Simulated scan of single mutants.
Amino acid sequence: MEIRRHEGELAELKDDRVFTWPNLVVKEFLAAIIVTIGILFYSFYVDAPLSELADPAHAENPAKAPWYFAGLQEQLVYFDPWYAGVVLPSLIVVGLMLLPYLDNNPKGNGYFTFRERKFAIVVFLSGYVFWYLLVYIGTVLRGPYWTFFWPWQEWTHSFPAPAPLHNLPLPLGIALLVGFYTVGLLFPLYIKKGTLFHNLDIIRYALTMGLILTMIGTAGKMILRLAFNIKYIIATPWINI
């Protein structure tokens, strides 16, 4: 309860705060029950997309992972397996674990607000939408031989041969990658003071920007592949990016 002194007298103001239990927990529990019931009834009318038993003589084309792994499978089109299958999932898990330590802004704790947390919400939703876009592409838009088909196109085994891919020259690729991270790390420092970046110490700033730039770079690498047929930015006998 908040008490303020007004014109020499103590004035008792109404406290609009409530306890988490039972006010919030009960509502969340009821919401979870309603969603569970909805999913249960939905499962009565929509069958799971199960295929026939595996036949060694007839390989499935395309062979797709379950939908929750389709995003990783889609990444294999653009990146080497070491990145798409190991580095990217690890960065996602570690990044989510680090969120409470990287963003210790007290605004928005205990109440919902967008105006006070625009950057954090936009970044999180961008990554969320980007991942489910990959899941959608891998699940719905990839046909035989993992060829891209628009939703209105019929899957067929007769399609034009894809354009040949090429790699960037090694010096250009290294310069592009180093320049991308250098500019990305330095640019926010020139934004007006008082923003999120100026409230972070050097370690949290480097980790935050590293994760954000990696997410942006992943999307950028996909655009280079789709728009300019660039397979790898850096291609060496040991590592490809």
Rank of each mutant, 00 (worst) to 15 (best):
234 I>E: 03
150 W>Q: 08
232 Y>W: 15
148 F>Y: 15
62 P>D: 06
178 V>G: 13
32 A>R: 01
37 I>H: 02
232 Y>P: 02
121 I>S: 01
110 G>W: 03
221 K>M: 04
235 A>L: 05
177 L>N: 13
95 G>A: 03
42 Y>I: 13
6 H>L: 14
56 P>T: 08
186 L>N: 05
56 P>M: 11
92 I>N: 09
96 L>A: 03
144 P>L: 07
60 E>H: 10
199 N>F: 03
84 A>C: 09
21 W>S: 06
70 A>Y: 01
41 F>P: 04
48 A>E: 15
137 I>F: 06
134 L>P: 06
12 E>N: 10
56 P>Q: 09
197 F>T: 02
184 G>Q: 05
204 R>N: 07
218 T>M: 12
149 F>D: 06
205 Y>S: 01
180 F>K: 10
173 G>W: 09
167 N>Q: 13
229 N>R: 09
130 F>W: 10
106 P>E: 08
66 P>V: 02
162 P>I: 01
195 T>G: 13
24 L>A: 09
146 W>M: 14
119 F>C: 01
27 K>A: 08
154 E>D: 14
62 P>E: 08
212 I>L: 00
200 L>I: 00
140 V>Q: 09
129 V>H: 02
226 L>S: 08
14 K>M: 12
214 T>L: 07
121 I>H: 00
204 R>S: 01
229 N>T: 01
134 L>Y: 04
43 S>C: 05
22 P>H: 02
180 F>V: 06
177 L>S: 14
82 W>G: 01
85 G>Y: 08
54 A>E: 15
54 A>T: 12
9 E>Y: 14
42 Y>N: 15
123 V>Q: 01
135 V>E: 06
193 K>C: 03
26 V>W: 08
8 G>C: 14
69 F>L: 14
125 L>F: 03
87 V>K: 05
88 L>M: 10
95 G>P: 01
160 P>Y: 13
174 I>R: 10
204 R>G: 00
235 A>Y: 12
7 E>C: 13
237 P>K: 03
89 P>M: 04
109 N>L: 05
37 I>C: 09
182 T>H: 03
38 G>I: 10
55 D>A: 09
218 T>R: 10
27 K>W: 09
111 Y>H: 05
203 I>T: 07
75 Q>V: 13
39 I>M: 13
129 V>Q: 05
112 F>E: 14
97 M>Y: 06
9 E>A: 12
35 V>K: 01
154 E>G: 11
161 A>S: 13
142 R>V: 00
19 F>T: 14
153 Q>G: 03
233 I>E: 10
73 Q>R: 00
143 G>Q: 06
